[in-house]
């Protein structure tokens, strides 16, 4: 039932335009030769070159990458453990509460997460900086990780683990040699997602950051307030590329493992 009608076509074109036109314009203007943002002055890559010399921007970008790397790794570890607990330990006491507490941050407004984090750090008088941003991002991202990994674990054939134990592998070795390799694609996808989420977060980061821990979104936002500079367009373009690739790899991995799981069940 795949028919191309005018209605379908229009819907797709409008939908994609709505989503991607602003981004396309931003990318095009990052190659604008003119200093004036709204005036097209021909193609140029000069803003990318200038960007390399802008230590504040480069520093912020590196900071963002570091935060994203550490928080994505922590979130993946914690989120995977949470998913295992939810799927494997059956109906333990307080399971529903645990599940809803894990999913709550998914729908919680970032402002509230950010503010509550700020209050916590102030209350226990922690100096805000790199680690406070990392902790905040880990908290936010681990629930996304838990959801992704849980989906994979839910259709995991438990008899595979029983078979491994039956063949003499103790529980930990069973997990490392059978379970982990099979859910690894989901874990990698979850890490990518967490990485992308941390990279583009502005709200939570601006609540929890401190001196010397300015992330790229914070830097861009503060520069924008002084007026849109063409360098910012260039930074944003690079950013879009990085996040886009991360999301693409994540979804490819998910699809790949899904396809492998299905093909194993089909009788040739």
């Amino acid at each position: 039932m795949r028919r191309v009608t005018w209605f379908n076509l229009c819907a797709i074109v409008l939908g994609i335009a709505f989503l991607y036109l602003p981004i396309v314009i931003l990318v095009i203007y990052s190659f604008n030769a003119s200093r004036l943002v709204a005036v097209w002055g021909g193609w140029s890559t000069q803003w990318y070159a200038q960007l390399a010399g802008d230590t504040a921007i480069v520093g912020a970008a590196l900071m963002s990458l570091r935060v994203a790397f550490v928080s994505a790794s922590l979130a993946t570890l914690l989120g995977t453990l949470a998913a295992l607990a939810l799927v494997r330990f059956g109906r333990f006491r307080g399971r529903l509460l645990f599940a809803s507490m894990i999913y709550a941050p998914l729908v919680m407004p970032e402002v509230i997460t950010g503010l509550s984090m700020l209050l916590l750090f102030v209350a226990i008088s922690v100096d805000r900086g790199f680690w406070t941003v990392v902790i905040a991002h880990t908290t936010m991202a681990m629930c996304f990780v838990a959801v992704v990994v849980q989906a994979r674990l839910a259709d995991f054939d438990m008899s595979l683990e029983e078979a491994a134990m039956d063949l003499g592998a103790p529980p930990l070795r069973t997990f490392l040699t059978v379970t982990l390799p099979l859910i690894l694609p989901a874990i990698v996808a979850a890490w990518m997602l967490a990485f992308a989420l941390s990279l583009d977060d502005l709200v939570i980061a601006s609540f929890t950051t401190g001196p010397g821990a300015t992330t790229l979104p914070i830097r861009i936002y503060s520069e924008i307030r002084l007026g849109v500079k063409p360098e910012i367009n260039a930074v944003c373009t690079i950013f879009i590329a990085v996040v886009g690739i991360a999301v693409l790899v994540a979804s490819l991995l998910t699809k790949l493992t899904g396809a492998r799981g299905t093909s194993a069940r089909i009788e040739p």
């Binding site: 008899s159 595979l160 078979a163 039956d166 063949l167």
Partner: peptide, 14 residues
């Protein structure tokens, strides 16, 4: 020292 063959075979797909 007992081994089992599973109905689903439970072969490790990886």
């Amino acid at each position: 020292p007992v081994n089992m063959m599973f109905q689903s075979y439970a072969l490790f797909p990886h």
